[in-house]
Nucleic acid binder design. Structure first.
Length: 281
DNA sequence: AGCCAGGGTCTGC
DNA sequence: GCAGACCATGGC
């Protein structure tokens, strides 16, 4: 990868194993949308970002070199050698198949509180509605950072709103869970800045003290925000995948230290198979 | 109308 | 430890 500064943009050339579409449409992140021009636009790390891709050339619009280094290099996890990781995971035939179809999915390094809150909202819910609820939460309690963009509200702000204050976002039974998380984070009972330095199972246990956070939600937060690549979130899709391709005696450690990456590739793979079969109608 | 969605809690065995 | 009811909401 090479970094070029041009006008007010940052251009990344030779971007291997990086697809914006796969990275943003794989269900790890709910705040980026494709624009009518084929770009992706969204808010992360308190900033609005517009980013586009032409083959292996990625352009971050209106981003300075220091902002790229400070924020987006780690957010997109650009220093991780995905070619090597995917090659190692391809000892498994199904993973080989998944990688053959899509090899540009990257696990983002998202913010802890936003990810925690987002995956509490995700429970027993579907992706379009998760996006809608998060979007209205940001509009309700976040800071306006441009004409059409709002930051993710702080835990303090959400805690102050209370369950009744969340009524407009229509999150249903999840509102009480969001508030419990917001209280525990803002009062320091859960210190998100130390989660990443704990051992995986300790960190998981800690997150699961929050009402509405079980194993699956905790694993998503650990994987998508804190770099625990051994976390292997099992939602209905992944359970289906295990049933279909692996069977009863499957263990989450089958894929080893990068099980979470494998999980995300398989999740994306299985959903793309479904979309394909729907299109054929 | 009924089922499902990147689940979790609570109760009862 | 495990099964089952229940939880809000919206799209199909």
């Amino acid at each position: 990868m090479e970094i070029i500064k041009k006008n007010n943009n940052i251009i990344l050339t030779n971007c291997n194993n990086f697809s914006l579409e796969q990275t943003f449409e794989c269900g790890q992140c709910f705040r980026f949308e494709q624009t009518s021009e084929g770009l992706y636009s969204g808010v992360a790390l308190g900033r609005k970002l517009i980013i586009g891709q032409e083959k292996d050339i990625v352009t971050l619009y209106d981003v300075s070199e220091s902002e790229f280094e400070q924020r987006w290099r780690s957010y997109f996890d650009l220093d991780r050698d995905y070619a090597c990781i995917l090659d190692r995971l391809s000892f498994d035939g199904r993973m080989r198949e998944a990688v053959r179809r899509a090899c540009g999915l990257r696990i983002l390094r998202q913010e802890g509180w936003e990810t925690l809150c987002s995956f509490i909202i995700s429970q027993n819910n579907n992706i379009p509605r998760i996006k809608k609820i998060i979007s209205s939460l940001c509009r309700l309690l976040g800071e306006q950072i441009s004409e059409d963009a709002y930051s993710f509200p702080t835990a303090e702000k959400v805690a102050a709103a209370g369950i009744d204050g969340l009524a407009p976002i229509r999150s249903g039974f999840r509102a009480k869970y969001i508030i419990d998380a917001a209280r525990k984070v803002s009062e320091g009972q859960i210190n998100l800045s130390e989660i990443g330095s704990l051992e995986y199972l300790r960190a998981r246990e800690k997150l699961m003290c929050i009402k509405g956070v079980g194993e699956k939600v905790a694993d998503c937060v650990l994987l998508f925000a804190f770099g625990f690549y051994e976390a292997f979130p099992k939602d209905v899709w992944v359970k289906r995948i295990i049933d279909k391709y692996y069977g009863e005696d499957f263990e989450a450690d089958y894929f080893g230290e990068n099980a979470g990456i494998a999980q995300q590739y398989l999740f994306y793979y299985e959903r793309s198979l479904l979309k394909e079969s729907v299109c054929e109608e």
